[in-house]
């Protein structure tokens, strides 16, 4: 086990609520690390709607998901939080009163006094395409991400999807794989036009295959594929030799390991006390879309409020002997010093 990273607070999820919680905790001198399963900061704002306008952030008539993420990062810069991206928290073990030892799927270990679950709709995980029996090949021939390109050398590779991930991997793995077949449900691709042109050129020169339709059946032994059946939109059925498959059907939100941390759950949401946003486990808080309480609204602005109240309670765990005086950023010179504006 690697040496534990010690921090006052560990936030699960780097979406808008997690980011603003850094600000509220920072004003109270609480140090924060954040873990997110995505490879980027911003949560749903980055993954689901980076370019879509949001109209209900108080004081900001219109901002995109990406813009809001950038603004929050600017706002919390003085507090210098540390991000651990592409990692999912797997286990949470109580080691103090409160105090937790938290382990990620990458084997990273944290020791924190307070854990804040700001995980939104849960963890983003690849969508499984609607192919009967595909589960059996996961961990064998079916992969939802490319970890090592070498794994695809000399493979009969089927890539399924029409977005940038699908097209990028067609182009990147084309030199390595024995043969690539790209399968997409329509002859129209949302990937970058340049990638689509390159793919079409490879198809035109006979260097790869493109099938328009859907994968309907898989054949193989154990978790090793040997063939895939593709049903074309015109009804033609093609069986393609295939011993590796990369489906790219986007991401979906699953609650994931949060369910195993000893927290009460109601319909996959975490009930909290609305004075502190603490869960049934002292020292573990839940803010944003993942919590529930009477009157709960899944709004970013509600998550901001929840983060502010959470911070007031969390600081008592981090500095049990310190008297916390509530101050305003408009008038407090000590807060302004922390923000680097005075």
């Amino acid at each position: 086990m690697s040496e534990a990273i010690k921090t006052d607070v560990l936030i699960v999820g780097a979406g808008p609520c997690g980011l603003f919680a850094v600000f509220e905790l920072g004003l109270l001198d609480v140090k924060v690390h954040l873990v997110d399963i995505l490879d980027k900061i911003g949560g749903q704002c980055a993954e689901l709607y980076p370019e879509k306008p949001i109209y209900d952030i108080p004081g900001i008539p219109m901002i995109t998901g990406h813009g809001l993420t950038e603004s929050l990062l600017e706002q919390i810069k003085p507090f210098n939080p540390t991000f651990h991206l592409n990692e999912m928290i797997e286990t949470v073990e109580k080691i103090g009163d409160p105090g937790f030892r938290v382990t990620t799927d990458a084997g990273k270990v944290f020791e924190c006094k307070v854990l804040v679950v700001a995980a939104g709709g849960g963890s983003f995980q690849p969508k499984r395409p609607p192919v009967p029996g595909i589960e059996a090949y996961e961990g064998g021939s079916v992969h939802y991400a490319v970890r090592k390109m070498e794994e695809f050398r000399d493979k009969d590779l089927m890539i399924v999807g029409g977005g940038d991930s699908a097209l990028d991997w067609v182009l990147n793995l084309h030199p390595l794989a024995k043969r690539i077949t790209l399968v997409h449900r329509r002859d129209d691709f949302r990937a970058a036009p340049h990638s689509v042109e390159q793919m079409r050129a490879l198809v035109a020169s006979g260097q790869m295959d493109l099938l328009i339709g859907q994968v309907t059946a898989l054949e193989g032994e154990g978790n090793v594929l040997s063939a895939a059946t593709v049903k074309g939109n015109d009804g033609t059925v093609t069986k393609v030799a295939c011993n590796a498959m990369l489906p790219f059907f986007g991401l979906t939100m699953k609650l994931g390991p949060v369910a195993n941390w000893g927290l009460h759950l109601e319909n996959n949401l975490i009930p909290v006390d609305t004075g502190t946003f603490e869960t049934n486990v002292p020292g573990i808080f839940a803010i944003g879309d993942i919590n529930t309480y009477p009157g709960k609204l899944k709004l970013i602005l509600s998550g901001f409020h929840e983060g502010a109240l959470m911070a007031q309670k969390a600081v008592k765990y981090v500095y049990p002997d310190k008297r916390v005086v509530f101050q305003y950023t408009t008038s407090s010179s000590s807060l302004q010093k922390k923000l680097g504006v005075n």
Binding site: K127, P130, G161, G163, R185, D188, Q214, G250
Partner: peptide, 11 residues
């Protein structure tokens, strides 16, 4: 919407 439907189940 077509782009999003690419992510649908059994489209």
């Amino acid at each position: 919407e077509e782009d999003m439907l690419d992510f649908g189940f059994d489209v």
